[in-house]
Nucleic acid binder design. Structure first.
Length: 585
DNA sequence: GCCGTTTTCGGCCCGACTGTTTTCAGTCG
């Protein structure tokens, strides 16, 4: 049972507990635990078997700690089972509909006998819902609308799709309204979560009305939901909600802080503020004793008023960031400008769109010191993988391109890890390459045991520099392979194999919690774009952001090394090269 | 159910919006 499954049980336990009528604080405790568990880098299953004290996890005390242990060891939780059996079947399902909370779900299940969304729908159509206490025609209509919108779209949007939309809306609004001063996206987008619920745009201007009008009249807008003086909401193609808020300059700091969240971070920040006699809201900070509202033009001064440094949006998840920041221990997190090379790049020699020369030119223009050309190996026929002969030819071509190129060009390959764990080129061929990225592309349905052993086997090869896109997931399209991530990361640390953070916004693989764990175990990380065309090296910013969510500093990431040190790393045999990575070699 | 430079007991974040109501419950972020 993995962490997200455990988190799911606590999320549902919170709902059941609320329906039963438990005090809200108990409900919130379950909720908070669920959200913390979801973010945890360490597998709880492993923590329990290692007898780690779970009470060190924020929001986990003795009761929740023993519930986790029960769940991990028996696969069940008595409290949950008992509550679920006492309540009408299907109540949890009903809550998937927006606008339906625990109270309404209970009412619908008990009074109307509905246990599925379909049964609820027909009860509403028969007019039975609006007859209930505190329910009316409007409520019934709204629920029906939500049921229908639930069917028409599938939840959250991958960040790679949402971010360009947000950026283009901001550009359009700035162009249409020169009066706009500050303007940026907030919410989960600004925290670089891998998927986005809706797009929040915040800004300042002398007059909000022209901006609101400009948004409502953008060609991509499908529907205007709310058009008020303070808040405007529209739906843009392809069905993403965009909220816009415009305030005066002097309130912008509190506004952007509030709407960046996360909710959990804001809850903790407000608790922290209350202890200091201050109350926070989206307008500013109120001194409780005097009732005066202080305003802040930017986030730095907002956090500063709480004696805190600016906490980077990527780590505002309500975990330990507040403790770390208040101790003065907030590290310098990796920036895009720290990246000195890209080590996973394809050309039209395999399945890339553009020539070696064009790819090299694009990367050199970014000011990188080095790159690795890593076309696919022969086994990947669908990707026009390179035979040994073509691979050697490519080397001579690359040597020619290197002439007069200011950037060091490494010759590499993205070598397929076959189903049995062997690699697609013989060792003597691999030894000729500067950089070897070993990746799984087929046999993705293997059992966890097989897949784990398969990847670890590749790590034991002395020529394998890194494992590429380790879980193989495609956001919203393909699930991660079954594998024991803890075992993989441990093996990476033991063998001196780097793990890739694939920056493609459709992959983001490793993901944030894996990155945190890798960092804790001393595994070298490499952030690569896996580019197949000249516009794709831009994706490096996604990789850097996801690494920041994993609290990466430059020294956790291999391709922040200056060229000379990176060459020293490559030329030192595994696993001794870890000493070079750690700055000891 | 959690937690402690106020506390081992008594607190526990803040506000907007909606729809149903005559003062507020439910939901959301």
């Amino acid at each position: 049972m993995d962490n997200s499954e455990i988190a799911q049980v606590f999320e549902e336990l919170a709902i059941l507990s609320e329906m039963k009528g438990d005090v809200v604080f108990k409900v919130r405790a379950y909720q908070r635990a669920a959200r913390t568990i979801e973010q945890l880098s360490l597998s709880l299953e492993k923590a329990v078997s290692d007898e780690v004290d779970l009470k060190t996890i924020p929001g986990v005390g003795s009761a929740i700690s023993s519930k986790i242990k029960e769940l991990v060891t028996t696969g069940k939780m008595e409290t949950y089972e008992k509550l679920a059996s006492e309540l009408p079947p299907g109540v949890l399902t009903l809550m998937n509909v927006p606008g339906i909370g625990p109270k309404t779900a209970m009412l619908v299940a008990t009074e109307l006998g509905a246990s599925t969304v379909e049964e609820m729908e027909s009860a509403i159509l028969a007019g039975r819902l609006s007859a209930l206490p505190r329910m009316g025609e409007k409520t019934a209509e709204n629920i029906l609308r939500h049921i229908r919108s639930l069917r028409s779209k599938d939840g959250r949007t991958p960040i790679g799709q949402a971010l360009p939309i947000a950026e283009s809306i901001i550009a359009s609004l700035r162009e249409a309204c020169p009066d706009v001063r500050e303007m940026e996206y907030a919410g989960s987008l600004r925290r670089w979560q891998e998927t986005i619920g809706d797009i929040d745009i915040m800004g300042t201007a002398h007059d909000a009305q022209p901006i609101i009008d400009a948004l409502a009249s953008l060609p991509s807008v499908q529907q205007v939901l709310v058009k008020g003086p303070k808040k405007t909401s529209v739906v843009v193609h392809p069905g993403i909600q965009v909220d816009l808020r415009i305030v005066d300059d002097d309130s912008y700091g509190a506004l952007i802080q509030y709407f960046t969240g996360s909710q959990q971070h804001n809850v903790r920040l407000r608790e922290y503020a209350v202890q200091r006699g201050l109350s926070l809201n989206e307008y500013g900070i109120t001194v409780l004793e005097t009732g005066t509202l202080e305003k802040f033009a930017d986030e730095t001064s907002f956090y500063g008023r709480l004696d805190l440094p600016l906490i980077p949006p990527e780590v505002r998840e309500g975990m330990w960031e507040l403790d770390i920041a208040s101790r003065g221990d907030m590290p310098y997190l990796l920036e895009l400008s720290d990246i000195r090379g890209d080590l996973h790049v394809h050309s039209n020699w395999s399945d890339g769109r553009d020539s070696i020369e064009d790819m090299v030119g694009t990367l050199a223009a970014k000011g990188y010191q080095y790159m690795a050309l890593t076309d696919h190996s022969a086994g990947l026929g669908v990707a026009n993988g390179l035979s040994i002969e073509r691979l050697r030819q490519q080397r001579t071509v690359l040597d020619t391109v290197q002439q007069g190129c200011p950037m060091k060009l490494f010759h590499g390959s993205e070598v397929d890890i076959r189903a049995d764990g062997s690699l697609d080129y013989p060792d003597d061929m691999l030894a000729e390459l500067d950089v070897v990225i070993a990746s799984v592309h087929s046999g993705l349905g293997q059992s966890s045991e097989k897949m784990t052993a398969r990847i670890i086997n590749a790590m034991h090869n002395p020529h394998v520099t890194a494992i590429g896109h380790p879980t193989g997931r495609l956001l919203g399209t393909r699930d991660a392979v079954e594998a024991d991530m803890e075992a993989l990361l441990q093996a990476a640390a033991d063998t001196g194999t780097a793990m890739e953070v694939n920056a493609s916004p459709w992959r983001l693989d490793l993901k944030d919690t894996h990155i945190t764990r890798a960092r804790e175990l001393g595994v070298p990380l490499i952030i690569n774009t896996d580019s197949h065309a000249t516009e794709e090296p831009e994706a490096m910013r996604f990789g850097v952001a996801i690494a920041r969510r994993g609290w990466c500093e430059p020294h956790h990431v291999l391709n922040t090394m200056p060229l000379e040190r990176f060459q020293a790393f490559l030329s030192t045999p595994k696993p001794q090269r870890l000493r070079v990575f750690a700055g000891l070699g």
